[in-house]
Design a protein around this nucleic acid. Sequence first.
DNA 1: AATAATTTTTAGATTTGCCTAAAAATATAA
DNA 2: TTATATTTTTAGGCAAATCTAAAAATTATT
Lengths: 260, 260
Amino acid sequence: MISQAEENYLKAIFKISEKEAKAATTNAIAAEMQTTAASVTDMLKRLAEKNLIDYEKYRGVQLTPEGNKLATALIRKHRLWEVLLVEKLGFAWDEVHELAEQLEHVQGNGLVDRLDEFLGHPKFDPHGDPIPDAEGRWSFRQQVLLGTLKVGDHAVVTGVDDHSAAFLQYLDQMHLALGAQLELLERFPYDQSLRIRTGNGQEIVLSEKVGQNLYVKISWEADRDFGKRIMSPAFLMAQLFHRDVQRRGGKRFAPLQLGK
Amino acid sequence: MISQAEENYLKAIFKISEKEAKAATTNAIAAEMQTTAASVTDMLKRLAEKNLIDYEKYRGVQLTPEGNKLATALIRKHRLWEVLLVEKLGFAWDEVHELAEQLEHVQGNGLVDRLDEFLGHPKFDPHGDPIPDAEGRWSFRQQVLLGTLKVGDHAVVTGVDDHSAAFLQYLDQMHLALGAQLELLERFPYDQSLRIRTGNGQEIVLSEKVGQNLYVKISWEADRDFGKRIMSPAFLMAQLFHRDVQRRGGKRFAPLQLGK
DNA sequence: AATAATTTTTAGATTTGCCTAAAAATATAA
DNA sequence: TTATATTTTTAGGCAAATCTAAAAATTATT
Ligand SMILES: [Mn+2]
Ligand SMILES: [Mn+2]
Ligand SMILES: [Mn+2]
Ligand SMILES: [Mn+2]
């Protein structure tokens, strides 16, 4: 049996290890969990006792295969619930994280699979994050930060790095939700701010910070029809991802290489 | 803030008070919660401290208006989740209780209302139990135990008293799910067992125990078409309940009078 | 290499929720 | 009404998960 607290720690460790290839430190986990280093040390002992992490005093931790499997399953559940909340219950993408944080801990035979089935086996959650399949395999995509585009590039919004409600609401206001089309018109050298044209033809300026928190996929085929044909976000997303390959679960894939 | 354990105790007290009009005893709560009397006493002190129950040593407990409201909301959540699990995710009615037992504790603004909306404001859960509305009002129905029918009565299955998986599965096997039609053909005086005809024309014999755990609604109009016209369970249930009145929340309604 | 700064662990408490065993109160029976 | 049985509470303890403060280990800096 594994407690909710233990599950949350596993997920935190997974997320840290995902970004930085090295072992997760006590402090990093404490920051992610919004708790104290002392509490983390306590928990690390428990998780090591259960063989969910490899833990050496003062050396940080790594998930064992067992721990990785549990963390992956937890993320799968979290993101599937998020899809349900947005697609079926009508929540906005900035409202669902806290709910999914609770729902992910619901245990029950067949629940996840039925959820997955009901939702049509989605590969990405409402924030564009990949949903591992039942065997723990991840979909991934060729996405880059908006800030790395070259002037003249056309692209489609595919995800966010900052998941805060404030950022998501800002994107909604700018008409930059998932699937939104855009073209980079200009980069101001002074502060690296970006002038773009959005799908509806409007021109707006975005700060460097936005450029570093918004993932996009560069589109070549689409640019000819840009602004003329109206395509639904769902259609666009499907177009963008239909060629995406899959990697085996277990071995974590390398952090996305940003830029060229 | 209220913990999951506290919520579960409130629900247990509510359920006990629902059946017996008097104060819920420590032992009754312990039985319902499958724990010890000592643990219950501990918790009663905490709930009384939070003004969720009226508690006098050795005198049992009653929910305060505040406690009643919380318990009602919890039951609403539990039963709405059960509807989702059965109607949307495809679970059988004997599989959903444990899941709903966890899901009922998920907290979040607007979750219950959106769930209710998505499900089409159901008035009864997959076991035929009423779902209080957002204001805490209960639907109720004119149902009696199968065992109290007179020979010759026609009826429709509307609910169960025993919610165990074993009983629910048995009912499935006998084609006595919610909405199933039946006619009481004979009562054997020897052991009070019942011979009935089910919707598909088959005759079966049910034990006295079944008769005391299955709720039905006597039907007059329907008997003419019995066995000829095929009606969906959903249609039948709707027909049966469309005239049901509602009672105000807060004051608990009297336990159902069985028999005449 | 020694000192300073930082990180991590330990020590000791606290809260929640549960347990068993014993004591106290209440209800039932003789 | 006294004795007996039952119910309920108290006492004492335990495990999970958290905290603060202090000690120990590691890392960075002179
Ligand atoms: Mn969580
Ligand atoms: Mn997400
Ligand atoms: Mn529960
Ligand atoms: Mn139910």
